[in-house]
């Protein structure tokens, strides 16, 4: 399904975010990508749909070599990959429905897009998705009137609206409170399984990754250092990914989050994992 080989990304400022990553996903499973901030998680995901152009290496999705595509080909390929963002990235001033339908933008002409004339199938599918993510009846609300969790649900609906062959999910829960984070993570995993869509999920919350993913990939300093099932993610493996001192506090603090700590408490303890801010 998805095959990444020798993927390298060097930013213009000389920062090497990826040092030759190899990764194959050949069944519709949810793959969690973990690693400390700056490990290259965001860069990896953005190199797949080339929002960040990779320096070298190959990304093949169901037989299409994405790295070799021209502009038009790349747009066609992007239609086949749905993306979900940490900051939701909804177009704030548009309605929920327009945001969901924008998942079909690759398939309609300019004037139809401008006049918001999407096909009846698309409209029905959008209503169905909104129902599925728990937002039926909110289609005419403006995106900036929603709460964080609701916005992420719209983001999920928009990505699935593309009927993607692959879901790229970038820190879907990092801006949410722990309870909502679990709900959103569950929703993403359920939908991916329901529709048989493989998903690549960047996540810095190890407990969430272990709880929901079928497979876990650990990145450290732009290299893949772990690839296995959640059960195989032993303390030793975590040491490999995060370094000796960091991982233990990570686990403990993540559990604390689940029990009692307010979301802001994440940011002030020992600097185990800083919240991931920018790509790379």
């Amino acid at each position: 399904m998805l095959e990444i080989s020798d993927l390298v990304k060097t930013y213009p400022n000389g920062l090497r975010a990826l040092h030759g990553v190899n990764l194959a996903v050949d069944s519709p499973v949810v793959v969690a990508v973990i690693g400390s901030s700056g490990a290259g998680k965001s860069t990896l995901i953005r190199c797949i749909n080339r929002l960040v152009p990779p320096t070298s290496g190959k990304v093949v999705l169901n037989g299409t070599d994405i790295t070799a595509l021209g502009r038009a080909g790349l747009r066609k390929a992007r239609r086949r990959m749905g993306m979900i963002f940490q900051e939701y990235n909804l177009v704030e001033r548009l309605t929920v429905m327009e945001n969901v339908l924008s998942g079909r933008l690759g398939y309609v002409g300019f004037w139809r897009a401008y006049r918001r004339q999407f096909s009846p199938e698309d409209v029905a599918a959008a209503f169905e998705l909104l129902d599925r993510v728990g937002l039926s009846g909110r289609e005419d609300a403006r995106a900036d009137a929603l709460s964080g969790g609701q916005r992420q649900r719209v983001g999920i609906a928009r990505a699935l609206m593309q009927r993607p062959e692959l879901l790229l999910v970038d820190e879907p829960t990092a801006s949410l409170d722990p309870k909502t984070a679990r709900q959103i993570m569950r929703l993403i995993v359920e939908l991916a399984h329901e529709r048989g869509t493989p998903a690549l999920v960047n996540i810095h919350d190890v407990a969430l990754a272990q709880g929901f993913a079928d497979r876990i990939v650990g990145l450290s300093d732009g290299r893949k250092v772990f690839d296995g099932t959640p059960a195989e993610l032993t303390p030793d493996a975590l040491t490999e990914i995060y370094g000796e001192e960091d991982w233990s506090s990570t686990i403990r603090r993540t559990e604390d989050d689940e029990e009692e700590a307010p979301p802001s408490a994440r940011h002030d303890g020992a600097q185990a994992i800083a919240p991931e801010t920018a790509a790379g």
Partner: peptide
């Protein structure tokens, strides 16, 4: 999830204005 189900359960028209 067939097309028929869509037709019966979800509206096919949505207007911004």
């Amino acid at each position: 999830m067939t097309v028929d189900q869509h037709k019966s359960r979800y509206p096919e028209v949505w207007r911004r204005f």
